[in-house]
Amino acid sequence: MSAWQAIKKVLTLRCHESSRILSEASDGELSFIDKLALRGHLLVCGPCRKYQKQLRKLRSLIENAMKSLESEESLFKSRLSDDVKAKMQAIIDSHNS
């Protein structure tokens, strides 16, 4: 990216680009230009600040939900029928003899 392109990106970032940079930020390190452009955009854009917050919350909600999977009762509403469960256990038992 040339210096001019970089300056232009910092000054003219739109929400669709800013949201992409926000997404990339949650998977790794941003380039200096992207960081700068994003920071500038977030200063003036409420909807993108909201998006940033909601992405963080989505991640921590999933993290919390997954943690509780390890030990507790199932939090999921999708369940197998008793019939399917019985068949599944029967298959396990037949392989276990």
Binding site: L69, S74, F76, S78, R79, L80, K85, M88
Partner: peptide, 10 residues
Amino acid sequence: VDRHSDALFG
């Protein structure tokens, strides 16, 4: 199945 199928299936 009794202990884990609900969580794993979900």
